[in-house]
């Protein structure tokens, strides 16, 4: 009995505890990200934003969630029921799945996979299924148009994301995310932080813009462009199924911000390894970097108008793809010529 406990039951219980330790903060983060988005945008547009429910409107996300829960779930005529309800679940669970490999502090990771970067890339490239399945299963023209746009958009921007990831992991010489963060601890020229956004600055910008496109955020929110497509792929969704899409989208933003932080902003590392900075725990640094990326997400939403579809395709294929390819070749050449290829 004791052996069974040590070998089988306890590991499972421990993994469940670890998963909960990741999921609870993420879900709280998602709830307050919606609040932060409304507050920040309202501040940028000189409005007040939510301020009625709770102090400063702090309970607004929970009020919204409760409201959504009590709504009626509608299944459109001619919809494919299983696929219709599977789609929001896929979107939501994919956004959660990625956290299995993201290290938030040295050793604080559920699974320290040695192909972590590939895993993240695989999970983020699957996000398109939730949208496409929702669009098809809804049996609605708006939803279908949204799904088609989304499929083309996400497949296009994935290519440049992939090339940039290759560039970064070539510089670090590892596919493991913890090792990737550790590789950024070496200061650049002895003075600057070793975070990869400094040597790879152009790619950092291209990557961030591609991430905006990959998460269907403004200015690339064509799949749900409300002025043309009502709400795009989620037109027919209501109640919990809509809530899952909504949660999934915001959880995806947090996940992608985490990815940007790990690849370019040095994960849990402080900018300099000196007294006041390295006393702050790594988790706090990581959370601060994610919060910064999320702020930029919202800032972009409040600032830029939506791209037209052909402009979006042009940007992905004719600007970002060649740029990231050239940068890949340049980095490889630099690493070989100056004999800096990581062992």
């Amino acid at each position: 009995m004791a052996e069974l406990w040590i070998n089988y039951i306890w590991p499972v219980v421990w993994i469940v505890i670890q998963i909960l330790m990741f999921l609870v903060p993420i879900l709280l983060g998602v709830a307050y990200l919606t609040y932060a988005e409304r507050k920040i945008i309202s501040a940028m547009q000189m409005r007040l934003g939510p301020n009625v429910v709770g102090w400063f409107g702090l309970l607004q996300p929970f009020a919204d969630a409760l409201k959504l829960l009590t709504k009626e779930t509608v299944l459109p005529t001619g919809a494919s029921p299983v696929v219709f309800f599977l789609a929001p679940m896929i979107t939501f669970s994919l956004a959660m799945l990625a956290w299995a490999v993201i290290p938030v502090n040295p050793g604080w990771v559920i699974s320290d996979l040695n192909v972590g970067v590939l895993y993240l890339f695989a999970i983020s490239s699957l996000g398109v299924y939730g949208v496409v399945m929702a669009g098809w299963a809804s049996n609605s023209r708006y939803a279908f148009l949204g799904a088609m746009r989304s499929a083309a958009q996400m497949v296009s921007y994935e290519v440049s994301i992939g090339f940039i990831m290759i560039t970064v992991l070539m510089t670090a010489g590892t596919l493991n995310l913890s090792a990737l963060v550790e590789a950024q601890s070496e200061p650049l020229f002895g003075v600057l932080p070793g975070w990869y956004f400094i040597p790879h600055l152009p790619m950092f910008i291209v990557f961030f813009v591609s991430v905006l496109a990959e998460t269907n955020r403004h200015p690339f929110d064509l799949p749900e462009a409300e002025s043309e497509l009502v709400a795009g792929f989620m037109t027919e969704y209501s109640s919990m199924s809509f809530a899952l899409f909504f949660l999934g989208e915001y959880a995806n933003m947090i996940m992608m911000s985490g990815m940007v932080s790990i690849l370019f902003l040095g994960g849990w590392l402080p900018p300099y390894d000196v007294a006041p900075l390295n006393l702050i725990p790594g988790v706090v640094w990581f959370a601060a970097k994610i919060a910064f990326c999320l702020f930029v997400f919202i800032w972009v939403r409040a600032t830029f108008p939506r791209y037209r579809y052909d402009q979006l395709m042009r940007l992905g294929w004719k600007v970002f793809l060649p740029l990231s390819l050239i940068w890949l070749a340049l980095t490889a050449g630099f690493l070989v010529y100056f004999d800096k290829v990581p062992a």
Binding site: A122, S125, L126, V128, Y129, V132, W136, M148, A151, A152, M154, V155, E158
Partner: peptide, 9 residues
């Protein structure tokens, strides 16, 4: 991530 998306499409 790529081939099946195009199939589905």
């Amino acid at each position: 991530g790529a081939v099946a998306v195009l199939f589905l499409f």
